[in-house]
Design a protein around this nucleic acid. Structure first.
Lengths: 336, 336
DNA sequence: CACCTGCTTGCACCCGGTAGCAAGATGTTT
DNA sequence: AAACATCTTGCTACCGGGTGCAAGCAGGTG
C-alpha cells in the first residue's frame, strides 16, 4: 500500500504552537458553538490556513464514537435502476454530512462478512439496498449484539426490528390495474422473476387481487429465470409458442422493466406482434430506456427521492425508525 | 445521529482481562505473524469469541496511518455504463482488502470539496472515475500539498503527475473503421457529445484519421447537446431533415451507445429508415441494452476488468503508477 | 474593595489500537 | 550448571483528536 510518506497533514498541536495557544483552543475554533473569543478564533484560523490544517476525521470519529459513514450493501448490479438510486442516495447522504461506503455483496463477500466488516469500521448505519437476508443469518451466527443499526431500502425487511422503506405496492398495482381496465384490457397476464422476493410476490398478489375486484381473472402467470432481458424474452417465447392466438392475454405486466424490454423485443422481433394493439405491456421501475421510442413502456416509478429522504431521516434519528411505505407514480406511455 | 448506545463493542483491554493476559497479547493474537504461543493465542481467541471481539479498524487506521479506504469520485450517474464498472471496482477493491467510499460530485459538492473531505477522512487513494478537473483547480486552491494519491479511471488525466487508466482509443477506432470498411461502407459520419473531453476528441480524431488512411473522407460530423438518447435523437433528426437521401452517410458512428440508441429510435421511428440497410450505426461502450433485439448495436467494449485491475495495482503500489492504455474489443452485431 | 457570575482557557484523561524496546521465560549448548 | 540464544510478554510512548473539570480572568454589583 502506497503510504502517504510525502507531506504530513498538520495537527491541532502544530497549529496551536503556531498560534500561541493550546491545542484545545484550536479544537474549539473548529467546533461550532464552543466557547472561544473572536480574537483567539481568528488567530487559530490564520495559523490553520497557513499550515493547511483541517481536523482529522479519523481521530474525531474514534473519540466521538461516530464516523458519519453509512455502509450501503448492494448485491445486484445488473439492475440499471440501482444507479439513479445510488445517485440520489449519495447526494442526500452528503448533504446530511454523511458519506456512503459502497459494499458489493457477492459470492466472495456475503452479508455476514460485510456486516462484520462494516461493524469493524464503526459505520453509523447500514443500508441494505435492494438486498436482504433472513433473520436466522443474524441469530445463527451470533451477530446482532453490537451491530450497527440497519435499514432496508426498496425491499421488504426480513429481519425483526429492522425497518424498511418501500414503494407502496398496493397503490401501485391499483393504479396500474385501473389504468389497464380503463383502456379496455380484459385478459391480463403477469410475468414474475424467479426469486421468491416478498416485494415481487406482493406485486403479483395485488395484481391478481385488483383484477378480481373487477370480476376479472388473470389468464396466465409467466415466470422468468431471473431479472434480465434475456430471461424475459425466453419466458414470453415459451408462452407465445404454446398459446393459441385466441387464448392469449391482451396485456402482460412484467415485474420490472428489464423483463418487459426482453419480452417486447421477443414479441415484436420473433413473433411479429404489434404492441400495444395485439398485446400490451406494462413494466415496473421506469428505467431510463423505457422512455425511448423503441420501447415507450408504460411503467411505474418508485419515489426514490422520498424513499431516500425517509431512510436518511431514520438514520439521523429525526424520525422514528419504522417501516414506511411511500406512493410512487404511474408513467403511461405507448405500450398500453 | 442515532448513536450506538446499545451494546458497546468489546475492546482489546476487556478481552485481555477475560483471558488473563495483557492487551498487547490480545493484539498479537489478532496480528498475523506476530510472536505469540499457541496456548496464549487459544485463550485470547476463546475470550474474544465469548465477548464477540474484533479489532476496531478506526483505531487501527489512526495508529497505522492507513485506512484501506479508497474514495471513488463519480459525477455522471446518467451513464448506465458506470454501474458495471462500479461493480467490478468494488469487487476487486474488496478482494484486495480495500473498501470504496462513493462520492457524488455535483453542484453542491464539487471536486475541491470532495478532495478535502476525502483527505480529512484519510483515504489511501482517490479514484476519479470518468471525471476529472483541470490542473489549475489544484494549484489555484493551494491544494496538492497533503492530498492523497489520485488516479483517473476511464478518462484522460488532466493533472500533472496523476496517472490514468484508459481504453486504447487508437486501437478501438482502428478496429471499428476496419470493420466498417470491410463491410463496404464508404460514407462515414460521426456524432459526438457536446463536451470537449479529450477522450471524446480522440475518438473523433482517430475515426477521421483511419478513414483517411483508406483514402476516404468522413462526410459529416454531427454533435449532440449531451450524452443522452434524447440528444442523440435530436442531433440525427436535424441531420436527416436537412440532408438529401443521396448525400446521406451510409454509416454513423456515435460517440457512445446512449447517443446511438437515441439515433436509432429516431432513424427508424421518425424517418422509417432501415438499420443497417439504409444507414448503419456504431456505438461505443457496449451497454447491456445494445445486445437486445430492439437495438442489436455494434459497439466497442472497454476492458473494465483489466482497467480496474491496473488501477488497483497502482494503488497497492505493486506496479509503478503511470498512465496505461488497455485494449478493448469490438462487438459486432446487426446494426452494421 | 470584596464578592459573585460567567466566559475562556488549560489540563488530565480518554477513544482503541500500534511500534519498538527491554525484561522475563524458555530452551539449547558446552 | 553456567552461559547464551530465542521466543514471549509487558510496558512506555504515540496516532490526533474529544470530554469535563477547575483555574484564570473579566465585568458587574453591593
Amino acid at each position: 500500500m502506497r503510504k502517504r510518506e510525502t507531506v504530513k497533514r498538520a495537527t491541532a498541536k502544530e497549529v496551536a504552537a503556531a498560534a500561541g495557544v493550546s491545542k484545545w483552543t484550536v479544537i474549539r475554533a473548529f467546533t461550532p458553538g464552543s466557547s472561544i473569543t473572536e480574537e483567539s478564533k481568528r488567530r487559530v484560523m490564520e495559523a490553520a490556513a497557513a499550515l493547511n490544517y483541517s481536523p482529522n476525521l479519523l481521530a474525531r470519529s474514534l473519540a466521538t464514537n461516530s464516523t458519519r459513514q453509512v455502509a450501503v450493501f448492494v448485491d445486484d448490479f445488473a439492475n440499471p435502476q440501482k444507479l439513479p438510486v445510488l445517485e440520489t442516495l449519495t447526494e442526500q447522504l452528503q448533504a446530511a454530512g454523511l458519506v456512503a461506503m459502497l459494499i458489493n455483496i457477492n459470492n466472495h463477500f456475503d452479508h455476514v462478512h460485510a456486516l462484520l466488516h462494516a461493524d469493524q469500521r464503526q459505520v453509523d448505519a447500514v443500508i441494505l439496498f435492494g438486498t436482504a437476508f433472513r433473520d436466522e443469518t443474524l441469530t445463527d451466527r451470533q451477530l446482532g449484539h453490537t451491530l450497527p443499526p440497519m435499514f432496508v431500502l426498496a425491499r421488504d425487511s426480513q429481519i425483526e426490528g429492522v425497518p424498511a422503506v418501500v414503494c407502496d405496492a398496493e397503490l401501485a398495482l391499483r393504479d396500474i390495474v385501473n389504468h389497464l381496465y380503463e383502456k379496455g384490457y380484459r385478459r391480463p397476464a403477469f410475468m414474475s422473476g424467479a426469486t421468491a422476493l416478498s416485494t415481487a410476490l406482493r406485486r403479483k398478489q395485488h395484481f391478481t387481487e385488483f383484477w378480481a375486484e373487477k370480476g376479472i381473472e388473470v389468464v396466465d402467470y409467466l415466470s422468468a429465470e431471473k431479472y434480465s432481458a434475456e430471461a424475459g424474452a425466453i419466458s414470453v417465447r415459451n408462452y407465445l409458442s404454446v398459446t393459441a392466438a385466441a387464448d392469449r392475454a391482451d396485456v402482460l405486466m412484467c415485474e420490472n422493466d428489464i423483463l418487459a424490454f426482453g419480452a417486447m423485443d421477443e414479441i415484436r422481433g420473433k413473433f411479429g406482434l404489434r404492441i400495444p394493439e395485439e398485446i400490451a405491456i406494462v413494466g415496473f421501475d421506469n428505467y431510463e430506456l423505457g422512455g425511448s421510442h423503441a420501447y415507450s413502456l408504460t411503467t411505474y416509478e418508485q419515489p426514490r427521492h422520498e424513499m431516500v429522504r425517509a431512510i436518511i431521516a431514520m438514520i439521523l434519528g429525526t424520525v422514528e425508525a419504522e417501516t414506511v411505505t411511500l406512493p410512487g407514480k404511474l408513467v403511461i406511455r405507448n405500450s398500453t
